[in-house]
Simulated assay, not measured.
Amino acid sequence: MRLYADPESKTLFFTTPGGGSGNSRSTFIAPDNVPPFEGEEAWFEMELVEGKPWSFWRAVRQVEPPADA
């Protein structure tokens, strides 16, 4: 999801189900790790890339939203 309605916006994040005390449900993603998409929101299969000094998330492929979304 882009944070603003600006098509040039580079703030991307995703949310995950669950979460809880001390766990954030939102994670920010570097724009170059997400393929272009239409509109302000899209659903992607995500992959955690292990790395040093930091691991990061990247979008693997765009998918259809779940029925309850």
Rank of each mutant, 00 (worst) to 15 (best):
M1C: 11
R2A: 05
R2K: 13
Y4W: 14
D6V: 11
D6L: 07
D6F: 08
D6N: 15
P7G: 06
P7N: 05
P7C: 06
E8M: 06
E8P: 00
E8N: 14
S9V: 02
S9L: 01
S9P: 00
S9M: 01
S9T: 04
K10M: 06
T11C: 06
L12C: 01
F13M: 06
F13R: 04
T15K: 12
T15N: 14
T15F: 05
T16K: 08
T16M: 10
T16H: 12
P17E: 07
P17H: 01
P17R: 02
P17I: 07
G18T: 02
G18M: 01
G18W: 04
G19C: 07
G19Q: 02
G19M: 03
G19V: 06
G20N: 02
G20T: 04
G20Q: 01
S21V: 15
S21H: 11
S21N: 08
S21W: 11
G22M: 02
N23K: 13
N23G: 03
S24M: 13
R25K: 14
R25Y: 08
R25I: 14
S26I: 15
S26K: 10
S26W: 09
S26H: 08
S26A: 15
T27W: 09
F28Y: 12
I29V: 15
I29R: 01
I29S: 00
A30V: 03
A30C: 06
A30S: 10
P31W: 05
D32Q: 07
D32W: 02
N33A: 11
N33Y: 09
V34C: 13
V34K: 00
V34E: 00
V34W: 02
P35C: 10
P36C: 05
P36A: 11
P36V: 05
F37Y: 15
F37R: 00
E38I: 03
G39P: 03
E40M: 07
E40K: 03
E41R: 12
E41K: 14
E41D: 02
A42I: 13
W43D: 14
W43Y: 15
W43T: 15
F44M: 04
E45S: 07
E45M: 04
E45D: 12
E45H: 07
M46T: 09
M46R: 00
E47H: 06
E47F: 07
E47L: 07
L48P: 00
L48Q: 05
L48Y: 11
E50Y: 02
G51V: 12
G51Y: 09
K52V: 09
F56T: 06
W57K: 03
R58H: 11
R58A: 11
A59W: 00
A59K: 01
V60D: 04
V60A: 12
V60K: 12
V60G: 03
R61G: 07
Q62F: 05
Q62N: 06
Q62H: 04
V63D: 07
V63C: 14
V63Q: 11
E64P: 12
P65F: 13
P65G: 13
P65K: 14
A67E: 15
A67Y: 08
D68V: 05
D68M: 02
A69H: 15
A69L: 10
A69Q: 06
A69E: 15
A69S: 15
